[in-house]
Design a binder for these strands. Sequence first.
DNA 1: TTGTATGCGTTATCAT
DNA 2: ATGATAACGCATACAA
Lengths: 352, 352
Amino acid sequence: MNDRAPRVRPALDSGRRATIGDVAAAAGVSKATVSRFFNHRERLLSPDIQARVEAAIASLAYSPNPMAQALSRGRSGLIGLIVADITNPYSVAVLRGAEKACQDAGYLVMLFNLGNEGGREREALDALAGYRVDGFILNTLGSGTDVVDAITLHGKPAVLVDRRHAGMQADFVSLDNAGAMALACGHLLDNGYRRMLYITEPERDVSTRRERAAAFKAFCADHAPQASGEVFESEEGDTVGLDEALRRLLEPVAGGTRVAAIAGNAVVTLRVAASMARLKRSFGVEAGFVGFDDPEWASLIGPGLTTIAQPTDELGRSAANCLIERLQGLQQAPRQLLLPGVLKVRGSSRAA
Amino acid sequence: MNDRAPRVRPALDSGRRATIGDVAAAAGVSKATVSRFFNHRERLLSPDIQARVEAAIASLAYSPNPMAQALSRGRSGLIGLIVADITNPYSVAVLRGAEKACQDAGYLVMLFNLGNEGGREREALDALAGYRVDGFILNTLGSGTDVVDAITLHGKPAVLVDRRHAGMQADFVSLDNAGAMALACGHLLDNGYRRMLYITEPERDVSTRRERAAAFKAFCADHAPQASGEVFESEEGDTVGLDEALRRLLEPVAGGTRVAAIAGNAVVTLRVAASMARLKRSFGVEAGFVGFDDPEWASLIGPGLTTIAQPTDELGRSAANCLIERLQGLQQAPRQLLLPGVLKVRGSSRAA
DNA sequence: TTGTATGCGTTATCAT
DNA sequence: ATGATAACGCATACAA
């Protein structure tokens, strides 16, 4: 029983935000009624009460506290987005699309940036899970089984972007790497380039890197002996190795076979362009070039760099929508969404 | 290596996370004691109880629910970061530094991207305030008084990055625009460039744009008649206007005065470089160039673009730290933190 | 249709 | 030093 005086709410001074109780008092109804105004307005509530509540809400500038809602409902309206490296424009572009779609669907995105530190994957997952995010969008490093464990542990739906995790039951959204590589190689071959060097970041465990390299080798095998190719792994900071690889590519060959380089992503494109500058060679003349990703500066370097543009915005949107469908209860085996790349032809790959 | 977190939580439904109550039960103590274990461990709690609680926590893989903590404590441990355009590498670089500092201080960042839509400022503020963020870091468009209203309304501390708001009582962190502009102009003048064109995005109400343009004019006035300058506002998409402005700059002049362009930020740098390519002219030969911001591709365009690099990471860190000090109760008049830019000399500004 | 009471997971204020 | 228990702001069975 309650033998104590009911606690008196302090007057609504400027610091405090109105609560559902304040609105209820102002409208002369119960808290439940105010709650219903937001959640089941049409189904129940008589017109006059509805009007009173509405007025009270307006006069108090009330809006529900999402934290309290989350606690009560068991879900937060938050989506956790973990990104390997916010510095990577590709990731940002995807993030942008995803955030937009989430907001449109009434979700807010909680971002965690790994800063390329793979070890923090688990930390990020746990922090986000702590805030009871309803689901995850993951564009992470993806080495170990750690993520898989954490996700299955938290039991929340997730969608993977660009980087697969072996053995993880989740939707997957990505560029069609095989198709894109065939597009790049085919274009070069069509324009007379027959010896190709594919330059990639070290594969580590990044699925996209692995897939692109595999597709490159497959293309060369399929088109031998007309086409031939090699792969070079470019470590960050190893300018010497890269310079040497390019120098070998550019060595004159009997028969005057035309040669070309393919860069696995924008980071590598940058390295390769820098290397060519050091070697005082230029693309479009001494060698062909196609790079994955289509940064805004691609057209300004040398004769313009030919690229494979990814539909980044759509990738992000699709990822978000996949997740949202799951949150709405969609039960289905994990899906794969592979979006096509677009070839942007510029000077670096011109025909003889 | 193989001692992973336990996957099974005894006596709990499969999906549910352990709560403080579960831990209390497992340890045979009260919830209050478990709470104390986290919040006042040293001050109170006997060793044996402490050990029991610790064991229970470990066996249940318990971690407190931040939402419930926020509700109870009245503060969320969240910092709201509103950014004008996540696509802008400058913003991202700042965001990165800020996020790092926040995480180090135990805060999580909640990001809201305006996508360059000024009208959504208020929406962002309200959404974030809804989640009871403890404070704001703002890198927004900053036109109206809307933001000022909202912030003072919510009564939470805020720090402004790069963009001031007239009449807003808040800490402000930014590049020292005046100093940086003097650095750029001085460098060009030293290298023999005497007629200068400053190209900027339309000023609108962005303080940084206004300050840089003002500093440019001031420099020219101070160094007349040796130096002279004009300002061109480059609208997005208006390639014709920009081409024309550059063409005029490049017109041969009696006495062979050397001329140079200065770009107000990386976006403009890109436009200017594209325009020069269209005009088939190049920097370092026919004209000098210095651009604000130092994107990674600056050294790869033409002879290398001379730039003013901003200490973006430190800007973000400083902003976060300013805010965190306020959150810890610092009472002080609004501060201004102006960090110096760094001149990166490359081929585009070489002496005759 | 509306109100009452309880629970969500914590913290904090009382007691003991 | 430890335990009850009342908030925190909201949603929702259950009553009326």
